[in-house]
Amino acid sequence: MTSWRSLSRTKIVWPLIALGALLLLNLFFTPHFFRLEIKQGHLYGNLIDILKNVAPIMLLSIGMTLVIATHGIDISVGSVVAVSAGAVAILIGGDLAGHPKYPIAVAMIAALLVCTAAGMWNGMLVSRVRMQPIIATLILFVAGRGIAMVFTNAMVIWLYAKPFAILGQGYVLGIPFSIYIVAFVLLLTFIFTRRTAVGMFIEAVGINPTAARFSGINAKNILFWVYTFSGLCAGISGLIVCSTVMSADGNNAGNLYELDAILAVVLGGTSLNGGKFYLFGSIVGALIIQTLTTSIYAIGIPADVSPVVKAFVVWAVCLMQSERFRTRIVRVFVRKGLSA
């Protein structure tokens, strides 16, 4: 009992329970949801689909977690995904024979640099100009798609350079290659924040920026680098998005991804008020969102009703995380038990 209690206080438990419940629901209501087949040497099935589709959101949510921990928000990430896709596409080029214009590695690094610069722009506005994060990142939210259109000349560019497809379509040991990228970024981020003082400083700035400044923390720099990092994550995410469909569409690539990323962070237990952050929670949060989407399709709920279902589940998960709500529920049940 006591161990369950201490467990229930750790933030990761509730998102995990929600994810488990979703999967359990599928076990009963969706035939073949868990079936895995091997076709052409790859695993196929709903679970693999989920992993394949979730990678871009997971990457965004890693960057977003740190931004939200500083009591900020970055709504430009969806547009930066489009910028990244546009940049890498134009550098690889739409040669039908699949010969890249520039080496693929060079194209990818260049795209990442552009996105890092985009993050720096956000970081500068928030930390130096001291704009409110939502307004500061709104600028790139709008402008980013324009920049992507400039890169692609307002057309959808199709790519044929095969090696580039590995990023979004490749498999290693039966698991999508993109998941390895996520794991790598997650691990690096974890080490970088939790095995240095960075994580503590981010939390300190998020909880009490004045006290952080008074304690000798360079809050401005923390903010700057956090937004820069979020830009980089969006860049990596954009490469995967582009590679998955082998095309760059300035209008639709990463459309509304920022909302899913924010949602993943919140579902994972990091408060929008800043402070304590949970990287693994955000990853589970992203999994919940993607599992939900896939389940809705698999169960056969009409597409036009699916946002309502999604909204309902999100609402339920958020309630579950509220300690106040939980104690109230427990009280209701206890009272009923007593009277019965």
Binding site: M200, E203, A204, N208, A211, F214, I217
Partner: peptide
Amino acid sequence: EGVFADLTVRENIIL
């Protein structure tokens, strides 16, 4: 301007 309420005593001291 002083205490970080949500951080542990240890983190508050070490900051």
